[in-house]
Design a protein around this nucleic acid. Structure first.
Lengths: 140, 140
DNA sequence: TATTGTTATACTCTATAACTATA
DNA sequence: TATAGTTATAGAGTATAACAATA
């Protein structure tokens, strides 16, 4: 169809296409839990850093403060998170019992998704790929 | 801030973060030409496949027919593209003289962007990374 | 002064449905 | 029947600005 692929040598293009494909698979894997990837990433972060505030989560994940508010409100309303006063302006976040259950399920779904998509790569190669990707986004 | 990074072993997460960072840099690199990444990718495709139709471009780039229409209309209105009747329902697309000029500038900007972001990687390593990314998005 | 949480809002990207004209 | 182009529209995701409360 296209005689010479104009994107053949463009790493950024393939990075983008790969990201879109992988995110679509992850979204499908999390859909049964009624979780979007961003919501799952927030649960993962709270599970790993109990008592973290939503502003800190936003900085860690690259989500803006203004966009964190409705997501945290929704997860709290669903009974997955509990807020606890940290100081007068910020609140410590923790997973509720239900939140922990959903977190475990989301974690299993994400692991399964990763294994399904990347399990065929030799461990060393997969590790090198991951290191390269980390370098790319943490560089700037 | 976060004691143990819950995303440390999740390839998909770093793929996504890397893609977002790279796309932001590309968007900034193309902004002086008043081109978005998607528009530039369409110019690249037409330059490589003169006379291609917009439905074919959409399939090649993963852009839906309905979303191609306004983009092609805009590029045509700006004088970068010319339409020529292929058959009664489809049109061959070509770059105008202006379109070719912009295409060359966009190509140079993209090359510069790639070199700036990935130039530090050894050629062999960069090639392997690209091959892995191609495999990931072309697999499903 | 700076930060947190929040609201409002706008813009882009993407997805679906429906229509016509043509093959 | 299937495809191309188009329009309308809805839903995400993301961006900025502003505000009150607090540090």
């Amino acid at each position: 169809m296209i005689p010479t692929d104009p994107f053949d040598a463009l790493l950024g293009y393939h990075l983008r296409r790969a990201s879109v494909a992988v995110m679509a698979d992850l979204a499908a894997a999390l859909a049964p839990l009624d979780l979007k990837p961003a919501e799952a990433s927030i649960l993962f972060t709270i599970a790993a850093a109990d008592g973290i505030t939503q502003a800190e989560i936003g900085r860690a994940l690259g989500i803006q403060r203004a966009n964190m508010a409705p997501i945290i409100a929704s997860l709290t309303k669903r009974g997955l998170l509990a807020k606890q006063t940290a100081d007068g302006r910020s609140q410590s976040l923790r997973l509720t019992q239900t939140g922990q259950t959903i977190h475990h399920q989301a974690s299993a779904a994400a692991q399964d998704h990763e294994h399904r998509l990347f399990g065929h790569l030799p461990a060393a190669e997969r590790q090198r790929l991951m290191t390269q990707l980390k370098t790319i986004w943490r560089a700037p």
